[in-house]
Design a protein around this nucleic acid. Structure first.
Lengths: 93, 93
DNA sequence: CCGTAATTTAGGTATTTGCCTAAATACCTA
DNA sequence: TAGGTATTTAGGCAAATACCTAAATTACGG
């Protein structure tokens, strides 16, 4: 759980997650969209994977990364709930 | 927004927030509950405040910190929403 | 096996973080 | 003013983070 929050603390990693919303992408595709080197991106992928926020599927020499929304749900909604925030967004009636 | 995620990345800071759920507390009360020094705690408070997650009310020599749930709501629910997670959490029946 | 493509690992540096103790500041009371 | 309490600021250090380039790894096609 701490892993998840640490992973989310970097803007590049949050954006990786957002870009994976539309479907899985290879490490290279993903990396090309950002302004840092591929090794640096590889490190970001590793952190996201370790946190359980993405998963890797190897197809030949290519790795496809895809979103693991359940971890995000579990951890963020769990925390929000623990903080007493009603996640239904119903305060204006 | 990045400030918020960075502030949430440290377990001590998340726990500060959870302890403030039950109402505002002085910096000293809050610090006594943790295993690190008061200056270190003061640094954590500063980060939470900078992120807009808590607010400070000075009463004489004492500072009362209290939760700012709206920031948490805005940022976390905003992100979750952007990720396409339905925040109603209804899959286990 | 050789060449090429995709990705990670290795090695190195600069910056940031998290922690500490000591000192400063702000406020209250006598 | 002096003394006491509450909290932050200052200064310093070790560890972690984020980044880079170069090299290694893994897989595929000929």
């Amino acid at each position: 759980m701490n892993n998840v929050f640490e992973a989310l603390a970097h803007p590049t990693r949050r954006e990786i997650l957002e870009r994976l919303k539309s479907g899985s992408k290879t490490a290279g595709e993903l990396a090309d969209g950002f302004d840092v080197s591929k090794p640096t991106m590889s490190g970001h992928f590793a952190k996201l994977k370790e946190a359980g926020l993405i998963q890797a599927d190897q197809k030949g020499a290519t790795i496809f990364y895809s979103l693991n929304l359940s971890t995000l749900e579990e951890v963020l909604l769990g925390f929000i709930g623990r903080m007493g925030v009603e996640p239904n967004g119903k305060e204006e009636g």
